[in-house]
C-alpha cells in the first residue's frame, strides 16, 4: 500500500462525492457519482480486494449509474430544484462526521497496519461461494429476482 496513491485516490473520491451531493444539475451530479464510485473501486484494489473492486465497477457504474441516468432522462420535465440549500442537513452531516472522526482517532486499537496476507484468488472466492456461502448466494439470487420483477411491475403502464 502506497501512501501517495492513497492520498490522491482519497482526494478524487471525496471531491467527486461532494460534487455529486451539491451540484445543481442532476446529470452532472449523476456523473460525479460515477467518478466517486471509480474512486471507491480503486480503494478496494488498494486493499487487496480486486474482485470486489471489479464487481463494484460492473454493478454500480455499468448498471446503477446508467439506471440513474435513464431515470433522470425519463423524469426530465421538472429540473428545478426549487428553494435553496437546506442547512439543517449540512449541520447534521458535519456533526456525524465530527463524531465519527473523534471516536476513530480516540480508539487506539484501530491504529494498526495491515498484516501480510496471501493474495486472494478468484478461485478461492468461487469455491467459497459454492460451498460455505451457497445458501446466502441462493437467497441473494431470489431477492434480486423478486426486486427486479417488482421494479418492472411498478413501472408498467396502468391499463384503465
Amino acid at each position: 500500500m502506497n501512501s501517495a496513491a492513497l492520498i490522491i485516490i482519497a482526494i478524487v473520491t471525496l471531491a467527486a462525492a461532494l460534487a455529486a451531493a451539491t451540484l445543481r444539475k442532476l446529470m452532472h451530479a449523476a456523473l460525479s457519482f460515477a467518478v466517486a464510485l471509480v474512486g471507491i473501486a480503486a480503494f478496494f484494489f488498494l486493499l487487496g480486494a480486486e474482485f470486489v473492486g471489479l464487481a463494484l465497477v460492473f454493478i454500480y457504474i455499468g448498471a446503477v449509474a446508467v439506471l440513474i441516468v435513464f431515470t433522470i432522462l425519463l423524469t426530465r420535465r421538472d429540473v428545478g430544484e426549487g428553494r435553496g440549500f437546506n442547512w439543517g442537513g449540512a449541520i447534521i452531516a458535519v456533526a456525524v462526521f465530527g463524531g465519527l472522526t473523534w471516536s476513530i482517532l480516540k480508539t487506539q486499537s484501530l491504529a494498526i497496519v495491515a498484516p501480510r496476507m496471501p493474495a486472494l484468488t478468484v478461485k478461492q472466492i468461487g469455491v467459497a461461494l459454492m460451498t460455505t456461502y451457497v445458501w446466502p448466494l441462493q437467497c441473494v439470487g431470489l431477492l434480486l429476482t423478486a426486486a427486479l420483477i417488482g421494479a418492472l411491475i411498478l413501472v408498467m403502464e396502468e391499463k384503465r
Binding site: A20, W87, G88, A93
Partner: peptide, 15 residues
C-alpha cells in the same frame, strides 16, 4: 466516515 457524511448530506439536504 467522510463518504458516509457526504451521502447523509445529499440524502438530507436535497429535495
Amino acid at each position: 466516515a467522510a463518504l458516509f457524511s457526504i451521502g447523509l448530506l445529499a440524502a438530507l439536504s436535497r429535495r
